[in-house]
Design a protein around this nucleic acid. Sequence first.
DNA 1: CTGAAAGCGCTTACAG
DNA 2: CTGAAAGCGCTTACAG
Lengths: 338, 338
Amino acid sequence: MASPPRPRIRDVAEVAGVSATTVSHVLNGKGRVDEATRARVIAAAERLGYRPNSTAKRLRSGRADTIGLLLPFGAAAEHAQHILAVEFYLTLAMSVVEAAFDHDQALLQLPPLRAPEDLRRFVVDGAIVVDPLPADPRLRLFDQLGLPTVTVGRDAARPADPWWVATDSTAGTRAVLDHLAAAGARRIALLTVDIEWSWFVEGRRAYTAWTHDHGIEPITILTRPDRLDSSAVEAATAALDLEPDAVYAPPQWLATGLLKAAKERGVRVPDDLLVSVGVDSQLARTGEPPLTALDLAPVRTAREAVDLLVQRIEGRASGGSRLIPAELRPRRSSTPSG
Amino acid sequence: MASPPRPRIRDVAEVAGVSATTVSHVLNGKGRVDEATRARVIAAAERLGYRPNSTAKRLRSGRADTIGLLLPFGAAAEHAQHILAVEFYLTLAMSVVEAAFDHDQALLQLPPLRAPEDLRRFVVDGAIVVDPLPADPRLRLFDQLGLPTVTVGRDAARPADPWWVATDSTAGTRAVLDHLAAAGARRIALLTVDIEWSWFVEGRRAYTAWTHDHGIEPITILTRPDRLDSSAVEAATAALDLEPDAVYAPPQWLATGLLKAAKERGVRVPDDLLVSVGVDSQLARTGEPPLTALDLAPVRTAREAVDLLVQRIEGRASGGSRLIPAELRPRRSSTPSG
DNA sequence: CTGAAAGCGCTTACAG
DNA sequence: CTGAAAGCGCTTACAG
């Protein structure tokens, strides 16, 4: 059971017949080292199975080579997982892990932060905060500790802050609406959730502007983000009462609630009603009918966020916000038959 | 932008007029310290906003107070996310994060490990490996580095290994089959995936045993775990060709494929066919019809796994495997109308 | 009850 | 090209 003691740099030095300094130089590619010496050191390190102690490196360098990820929900807040779609967040998280790895960073998954002390025990060089609310107290926490952050989604309360990555909600919303209009819709309703994440706020604004530009009466149904399972069908039914010929429901749970409400009422999709959801998922791809959706590009979003955070941590000035385009995936739910 | 230099223990000592040793004693509750001195130290630490440098603590103690989590898929392996259900893994992961936090551990999300070197750069005291395959090479990796692991799901190739937590697949499968039989089913088919995770292997075995015990002909349809979206409906159609009156489809994507295939063929659920899925989800709860499902208790599973791993890391002997019961959630898909 | 000293395993000026 | 020494910020015997 007891594993053999792990070799230290001095063990490698001893075997190679050199000093620890030289071993360090060889292993880190610093300084000039004789070719023969280098070979001996590498052979010794390999033979001993040496791997440098990261903790010691960190103490020396002051860098943790670890970034934190803060998702907008915990395990208990089940309902929050459905705000957009579970898959989006899982793919985002796994992509952040892999992108961090490619940057030689480890990824610490942070729990929901309740008190300032909560954050103190985590050793990170910075963090990615997903879906900040305006003036999000979590961001203030990081600021207080002097830890750099990058947000996925904008913090509306800090319009001047350039450290964010976000899917282009405005353009995405327009793409959906243009698509529905091109398919013949004249009364397009927006069925969405009343939450201050920039994706939703900007989507609502874009909808209002688009309907104004097209001389179309805006029909907006807002739901509260709690009591999801039950409220979706209620809200969708309220939307159908207004007799739209198309509905754009950004969150997945509202789109599925809409399908259910339509069915109960004998409204056929797409024949009587065109539908689009705001986030792609397996459900959208393979459901009945398949749902037109926006691909929010979680993989790319993750990579850009990690990229930007690493730049910020390293003090490289080239940072700045990054707007990611969402791509429309037209499917049967918005394709009039015949 | 430049944050003020972080106070060190010696700064606190200076302000409090004591030695670093005493500060350490106070802050860690070691040794005897005069009450007045203690108060001075605490006041000084508070005034300076002192928080100990975890890296230095780690170097000294040799413990990282960090555990790793290795999920059975990466961001790219989209299909794998659907093997069971995305929600299960997201809830499991978030629960592991919170359970780790409660144990004063941080949670490092590990990327898919490809080479032995991949693991070396992560500083963890141990790891939770989810859904190991028999003789999983990832587990060997941890073994080689002398890092303790706990698996979620059993490693069939190491039957003697006691370091696992798993949902009771055998009892869960029986519960589903008993339930379907009680609802009147006589030809119950198993529609599942050909993957060597213990949850599925034990489920198949339990199904075979149950059908044998009940003198019922076993009908098993196995699908390959790749090409998920397309293969689900194909496999489900093949299952329907055998004219079962009930189908147990453990993975969510097969259950939804089955509903689709049934609809195409005019088979009504639950009137003509009873259906149960093996993992609970929002889809199961709110779909049309709502699906009878097993609640795999991801929150509890996560807590037990973290618990067990921490015990193993600390060398406490009380460890041992933990079997978590799955709970049946009967819904309309298996409730004959009338 | 309190503190000086050693040491965890590295890296990096600096000297040779 | 190579190495002795200092130091990153802690904790813990040990001495007083």
